[in-house]
Design a protein around this nucleic acid. Structure first.
Lengths: 232, 232
DNA sequence: ACCTGAACACCGTTCAAGT
DNA sequence: ACCTGAACACCGTTCAAGT
């Protein structure tokens, strides 16, 4: 039972404020209004408190958003499936679980920084490193490879998951892709020989599949690094 | 010769404003003061104009920063070395040139979005796609692989290159790493079996090398995808 | 120890007015 | 067509005062 020292909370709030409550409310508002629409005033209102009160629980807005993003990572870790057939498969499932969690909270990906210092980012890197170890990779390469996978997951997710304008409003991803594809089609084929030929792929592609394709390239590379075969 | 219609520019500015001049000044100020310290007022002052004048040349601050980031990508493209021995080697050199350019302008990486719409981002993806084509990868996989490499380069760069506080002030990356390593050392080895064993690697690692290690994993994966060998 | 809410310093953007 | 600069609406953060 949480001790409630000092004055009882005002308004309708049942519990005293805590960092956990503040971060939880921040996640909800970031989901709802996006990073743009998320303000301390709004958060204070939602928590029925003064905006100054928040500074008792977090140092500033940057720290709060970082903590909110770390909580999203925590969701991914608990959502990730358990032991699978082989460390490689488990690594793949973990990475996809993180992508999916970040996709559900589009503002979050760009706030996961490296090297990790927050609790769930640390857990994630540790789990990746443990799985990399289990693939049999020599000890002197484990840190670099684990970090590379961590960077891929968070960095590429942030690149793919562009935080659409508002939370609920989806201004049609298809419309955006169509518009971009038309733009590419109007380019000069002499200057853009590749792009002018792949507009069909652009229209059809799926973001999650794209993430997985790159991930599989990376994991294949890991496989080769672990067990190099002589050139044919 | 640029036509200068209307009133001659005030103050000491020799030329009329243009989007090119505005973006150039924005890059300089972003380098100097970081994204935090970069304001339209400061930019207007630097250009000896009113802050409202900037809105004649760019729609808003977001667009201006995106254009500034795209210019950094342009630098990378002109800096990238020419034809190398093999498409794979050229791909690798191009990716590293982009990383280096983004490293020189730490605010830029997180503002390169996908799918690309700005001029230099389009050039970069086209160049990557052309090189991927030259490796001999079948047509139906080129788009996905080229995009994966593009995402890796921009996304992982953004993750690795954390925009230090101010522009010139370097609050010692080593100090930060030391501090993080100490943090990891204090973790419970039962909960973090991997991290507590790699603090040495953390202290010693080089960001650019890390980028390249992941890149090489990816390119190895591409190599295998292009020319799959039967399992041993 | 924790909360309140007004006050401060600042910022992006707009716009009527100029040339 | 392009620039000026004041004005508007808003925001993160601080802090004296409360309990």
């Amino acid at each position: 039972m949480p001790r409630t020292r000092g004055r009882a909370p005002a308004g309708g709030r049942a519990e005293a404020l805590s960092q956990e409550i503040v971060v939880g409310a921040a996640v909800a508002l970031l989901d709802e209004f996006g990073e743009r629409g998320f303000t301390f005033r709004l958060l204070a209102e939602r928590l029925k408190t003064g905006s100054g009160a928040l500074y008792w629980h977090v140092a500033n807005k940057d720290e709060l958003v970082a903590l909110a993003a770390d909580r999203v990572l925590g969701d991914a870790l608990t959502a990730a499936p358990g032991p699978a057939a082989g460390a490689g498969a488990e690594l793949r499932a973990l990475a996809i679980a993180v992508f999916d969690a970040l996709d559900r909270h589009q503002w979050a990906a760009s706030h996961v920084t490296a090297p990790p210092t927050l609790a769930n980012a640390l857990r994630l890197l540790d789990r990746i490193g443990t799985l990399v170890t289990r693939t049999g990779l020599p000890a002197d390469r484990r840190f670099a490879v684990a970090t590379a996978i961590f960077y891929y997951v968070t960095g590429v997710s942030a690149q793919i998951i562009v935080p659409g304008p508002a939370g609920g409003a989806v201004p049609s991803r298809d419309a955006f892709l169509d518009q971009t594809a038309e733009h590419w089609e109007r380019l000069d084929p002499a200057e853009h020989p590749f792009l002018t030929r792949v507009t069909g792929d652009l229209r059809d592609h799926d973001d999650r599949d794209q993430f997985i394709i790159g991930l599989d390239l990376l994991l294949t590379g890991l496989d080769v690094a672990r067990d190099p075969r002589p050139p044919a």
